[in-house]
Every structure is written in C-alpha cells, then in structure tokens.
Design a protein around this nucleic acid. Structure first.
Lengths: 198, 198
DNA sequence: GCGTAAAACGGAGGCAGTGTCCGGTCAACT
DNA sequence: AGTTGACCGGACACTGCCTCCGTTTTACGC
C-alpha cells in the first residue's frame, strides 16, 4: 500500500506540515517582493527557524523550483489545450504567450532561469523545467516551419530567449502593456514567414 | 579666471584625488564582478573609508553613472560617425549595435538602466543618459521610416527595449555569440519594412 | 502505553555588505 | 603661523545569508 516504496519509516508529519507552510509563505513573499525576498522572513512567516528552511530547500533555487511546481503543471496542461489546434502558427503564438506568463510569475524570475539554462549540470533544480520549455518551443517552431509559417533560419532557442526577454522587461515594471504588445508584435513579425496568403 | 565661477574657495586637491581613485577602483570592480560589486571593496581598493565613498557618490547608481560618463561620451562621439551615413537603415543598425555595447559595459547594467527609465523623477542619475538614448533612437527610427526602411508601427522606444534585452541576455552569459546574432537578426527583420528592393 | 533511536527542529552565531555618524585631520585662506 | 570649515575614515548599527549543534519531536518495537 505504501506509495513511497522501500521506505522503512513513515515520513514524519511535521516534515510535511513545515514544507507546506514554507511553500505557502515563500509563494506569498515571492509574489509580493520578487524572487529576491528575504528567506529569513519566509522562515519566520512559516513559523520555523532558518535551519529548517535550509534543510528542506538548500538553495534559493530549490525553493523557487518547488514553488514553481504548480505553475509548471499548469503549463503542461495548457500544452494539451494548444496541441489540438490545427493552425501551427497560432499554436506557436499561444505557446509563447503561455511561456511568457510562466516567466512572469514572480518578478526577477528570468534571471535564475537563464542561469539554469547556462548550466549543463543538473545540480540546479531549475535546469529541468528550463530544458523542458526549450524543447517544447523547438517542437512548436518545427511544426510552424513545416506549415510554412515560420522562417527556416529561426531556432526554438531564439524564441525562448526572446520570450524570456519580454518577461524580463515586464518584470522591471518600466513599461506599460502597450509597449509590451508592440514588442511582441515586433518579435512575431521577426520570426514569421512573410507569406502573402491570408 | 576661475572656471567654477562664484566659488569662494578653491576645491581641495584630496577631493579630486579621492574621486579619481574611487572611479578607477569602481570601474575595475564593475568590470570584473558586475554592477553588484561590493562598494566596501571599492572603497578599500581606492584607499579611502566607506564614508568618503558615500559622500562622493550617495548611491550605487550615482557611482555607476559617474563611471559610465566616459562611455557616454564615446557613444556621443560615435553618433557623429554614424550621422554622415547616407543610408538611414544602416545608420539605425549601427546605432543599435553601439547602444548594445554601451549596455554591455558591465554585467547587470541593464537592470538599473530600466529602473531609471521607469522613473520620471530625475533623482536617479541614470535617468538623464537613459532618456538621451531613447530620444536618439527615436530620431534614427524616424529617419529610417522616412526612407522607407522601417515599419511605421515601430516606435523608437520599442527598439530601445529590444536592445536592452539583448544586452541583458548577453550579460547572463547563458548564450553563445551565434544565438545572439540570430536574436539580433530576428529583431531586425521585425522592424524592417519588407522592401523588395536590393 | 512506554522506551528508544533516528530524524527534524530552531536559534545562536559567524560572515559579508550597506549606509550613517561624528571626532579628528588637513588643506586653503588671512 | 593661525583659523576655519570642509573633508576624512573608521566604528557601528542593521539586514540578510547560511551553518552548526544541543534539544525536541516523532515513529516504531515491545
């Protein structure tokens, strides 16, 4: 019956309780203050000591990845909605928007994500979701290219970078939504094949 | 004869000496460690106390702006080289590259620059150079549009944002020069008028 | 129930960086 | 040389990061 398999002992209840409290407090702080929020404050709000926080999540990235888990699942679910679309071009567009929202979950999130994209070592817990996003983008780009809607010279990684950039700019809070829309349009007209159809 | 005008006293020599030492040390540290470098270390390397540093430059941005002064002048000089170009399209392209290099002077520089672009209050010493760059970009864009080389829907601010983004990505160190080139190409084909000439 | 051992807790504390304050100092003027 | 005021610089208070270790809590076997 045990789901965990070869565990000799049942996991302690306070472990799960503290972990949940930490995740909730962290999400609140990350939402309000961005990913640079004080971990000390998170621990205090969760009602635990700093040591407990660092035992559960050895690095800020580990905590971040755990908090992001929910959003990652939402993104995967969203792929299922996008996939059935016949229009590969529209699918790519929607995927890019979904990624952008994901990156914009917390202010400052693009920074550690790019750092994770740089490292090949999987010691960074953000590398896994990051690689997933890049791979998915490549698939959408390929489909759009096959449909003749995207230039052959464009790589999925390029659009990943462009999307992270938009989220970064959004996160700085220095621009209104109108400028962001123009920037997205600029990127889109950058990767689209100049097809005369439609 | 006094250049400074109504100054009763001649400025002390140690003031200028300390200021110069601070600027030099700051440049070294910013180059090596990015704009987040320890100001304590800068002061120590300049051979002055922390108090002296903060009296000369009350905030990190003030120090940054002062260190950037030289580069700003270089950029203005570069405009003089670009201006005589007959080709407005090539002028815009070169200007964007010049800006990108300016933004990439120190790792992490895009962040405070965008923060400065957000504030209308001129209390931030980076606001002035930032506004200059945006205005200059708008002029280049206008010229390119008049020549029929850039889309009418593109604003100078958009290309400013796009260029800052590229610098930011470059600063993260997560990408090779090849990807950056493709990203620049993507932006360029995003703002260019799809003219059949050439 | 109760003893036990392993696991987890949490706070004290070392470390680094920021920014301020104030007594001492040094250069410019008389 | 003496005076004066601007300037210097280190001590200090504060915040946040992260670790170590004595204490507590929990699950398990009896």
């Amino acid at each position: 019956m045990s789901v965990k398999g070869q565990q000799g002992r049942k996991p302690r209840v306070d472990v799960q309780r503290n972990r949940a409290a930490l995740l909730e407090a962290a999400q609140r702080h990350f939402l309000r203050s961005g990913i640079g929020a004080s971990l000390e404050a998170v621990a205090k709000e969760a009602g635990v000591g700093p040591g407990t926080l660092y035992r559960h999540f050895p690095t800020r990235e580990a905590l971040l990845a755990a908090v992001l888990q929910t959003r990652s699942e939402e993104l995967v679910a969203r792929r299922a909605e996008i996939a059935p679309l016949g229009d590969a071009s529209e699918a790519l567009r929607q995927w890019l928007r979904a990624m952008e929202e994901y990156f914009s979950a917390f202010s400052g999130l693009p920074e550690p994500l790019m750092a994770a994209a740089r490292e090949q070592e999987p010691d960074n817990p953000l590398t896994l979701p990051c690689d997933y996003l890049i791979t998915a983008t490549e698939e959408y780009v390929r489909a759009a290219q096959l449909a003749g809607h995207a230039r052959a010279s464009v790589k999925g990684y390029d659009l990943f970078l462009a999307t992270v950039s938009v989220s970064w700019i959004k996160g700085t809070g220095a621009t209104d939504e109108e400028s962001l829309d123009r920037l997205r349009a600029l990127i889109e007209s950058g990767y689209r094949e100049r097809d005369n159809e439609e």
